[in-house]
Amino acid sequence: MSEAASIYSVDKVLLVAIRDNITDTDIINLQEDLSERIVNEAARGVVIDIAALEIVDTFVGRILAQLSSISRLLAAETYIVGMRPAVAMTLVELGMDLPGSKTALSLSHALRSLKAKGLA
């Protein structure tokens, strides 16, 4: 796992922090890492924090959608949090509004939602 993204485990929730300098390879590695950790740790919740991302393209957009789909398949509820306005606008502009993914304003908002559902 490179430094461009880190996965932290808190209780039964996996926190993924994506840094700004993430590369395409990093993000594919992250996808593998995350799916394995979800299974190994029997995580029921995943929070992907993209507050550091300033620029997205179709590739990153697609991977974000994939990350949440994979997690959902592995029975972990996934939240994408901390998206910047410019990133949100770009994604909508690209027609990638992540229809299947849950979103929250911040990490704490996502944790609150997960707690409310008894997943954290």
Partner: peptide
């Protein structure tokens, strides 16, 4: 609708 989609992406 696009505005609504962007708002949702932000988590609101």
């Amino acid at each position: 609708l696009r505005t609504a989609a962007a708002v949702r992406l932000m988590g609101a």
